[in-house]
Design a protein around this nucleic acid. Sequence first.
DNA 1: CGGCATCCGAGGCGATACTG
DNA 2: CAGTATCGCCTCGGATGCCG
Lengths: 140, 140
Amino acid sequence: MRSRSPRTSAQVAELEPCGQEGHVDCGIRDVLDRVGDRWSVLVIVELANGTRRFRQLQRAIDGISQRMLTLTVRRLERDGLVERTVYPTVPAQVDYRLTAAGASLTHLVRALADWSLEHRDGIARSREDYDARHPGHDIR
Amino acid sequence: MRSRSPRTSAQVAELEPCGQEGHVDCGIRDVLDRVGDRWSVLVIVELANGTRRFRQLQRAIDGISQRMLTLTVRRLERDGLVERTVYPTVPAQVDYRLTAAGASLTHLVRALADWSLEHRDGIARSREDYDARHPGHDIR
DNA sequence: CGGCATCCGAGGCGATACTG
DNA sequence: CAGTATCGCCTCGGATGCCG
């Protein structure tokens, strides 16, 4: 998912209601490689509730492996969306919190969550209908 | 990416500014498996500009293989976000357009794109800083 | 506790060739 | 044009084990 395909053009998608056909590219891709990652968003969602320690995150997000949690928070830290604080206690304690940039993403995540709740039933029904009309034709 | 991990709990994430630690789950996951997909979003972005044919989509999104475009539009159709219309001409012509549900996602995609443009420079700088401070420690 | 290194299987995805 | 089918790479990501 995070693999970089060789980009040639880098123009801004217009997003006009009825615009001309054009290249969809530019920064959208960068964000989606991040926001699109299931774990990244879930971490942001949890951190939106407040500062969390490593173990807290892992327990909260259930299903994430420790490896993926490590990778995810590291990438978010690298992107400047999450701040990592290490307290030299024994055993070590590490706090994670959203930066200003990361916090600004929370609104979008909320919006996504809202949209999800509003449409999940419709989507589920649509899928059933589709599967009923296309027997054996599984797309997953 | 689309694999289902066994879910046990299915409660709604609270998203309170400073709430208690809890399970991040519920419908967010469903949506993210869809919205999170790079291709899905790019298709929605392009269709937000108007009705498109298969080839138009493929040319607009550059980088997408015909296989992935097929899979992506099929899944979006199955979810009821995209409507597929086949005209029995020769050669065949197929139009894709957003449904009402799909169109409602456009706002979120716009928001994501906006956020992307606002923060991409900051993120890029943050990455450089991080990489400079952590030589050889590549996370990708 | 909070990691990192390694192994390894599953499947996402691209490339290619063929059909209506 | 708009797909379907097949093959194969290659990455994602889980499991396991070790360290400070």
